[in-house]
Amino acid sequence: MNESCYLDGQASLEGLTVLAGRARRLILEMTHRAGMGHTGGSLSEVELLVALYFGGMRSIDPSRPDRPDRDRFILSKGHATPGYYSVLALRGYFSPELLETFDELGTPLQAHPDMHKLPGVDMSSGSLGQGLSCGIGMAMAAMADPSLGSFRTFVLMGDGELQEGQVWEAAGYAGALRLPGIVAIVDCNAVQLSTATGPFQAPDAVAARFRAFGWDASGVDGHDLAALMPAIASARERAGRGPVVLVATTVKGKGVSFMEGRCEWHGKAPDDGELARALAELGS
C-alpha cells in the first residue's frame, strides 16, 4: 500500500493517476467510518495534493518531517483533512491504517490539522483565512535565514475561503513586497458550505484579483495531472521572483457523480449504500 519507496517523487503520470484514485477511496472510507468529514472539498483537492507531495515539493522526507530546508505546505482550507491525510499516508508519513482513527478521541488525525499531533503537518490550521499569512511568514523566514535553503511554501486555499478578509491583507502585503518563496494554490471547486460560490470566486476573477495585488497568477485544470505537474514546477520556479498563485479549476466531490457540484456534500460522510455506490463508480 505504501508507494513512497518506489515513487519518492519520481512517479510516472500513470503512477500518479493510480495514487489519486487510491486517495479518493481512502477519503470515502475514512469519512464513512468516522461518520463525518469534509468529503466534497477533499475529493476536489486530490490531484493538487498528489502533485505536490509526489514531485512538486522539494526536500520533503517522511522519515525526517522536520528537515529544515524542506518545502512547506499549509492546508489553509483546514477542514479538508480526509484528502490531506490520505495523501500524507500514501507518501509514507504514517501507515494508512492510522486513517481508521480519523477524528476519534486521542488520534493524531484531528478533524483539522494539528502540527503537534501529526508529524509532517507544517502548520496547524482550521480557521479559514489564516494560512496564507502563516505561509508568508515562512517565506520571510526562508529569506532571512539562508541556512534554510530557500525553500518554497505552498498554501492551499479554498475558493470560498477567499471571502475571508485576511486573505487580502496577506495578498496585499506579499504583493507589495514582491515577496519570493510563496506559492498560493486556490482550489476553485465553485461550491461552499451552503451555496455555490459567488462571481468573485470564479477562477478568472480570482486570478485577476491576485494580479491586482501584485501576484503572478496562472490557471490550471486542477484534476489534470499532466498539466498540474509542470504548472507546479513552473510556479515553484517563478516564485523565486515574487509571489505566485496557481488558480486550479476543480469539481467539488470529483469522481463521485452524486457528490459532484453539490454543497450537500461539503461536510457530509457517505452512509453504507452511498459508499458502495461511490466506490463502484471509482472502480478499483
Partner: peptide, 11 residues
C-alpha cells in the same frame, strides 16, 4: 499569522 509562520521556522 505572519509572526506564527516566522516562529515555526525558528524566529
Amino acid at each position: 499569522c505572519v509572526a506564527a509562520g516566522l516562529a515555526s521556522c525558528g524566529f
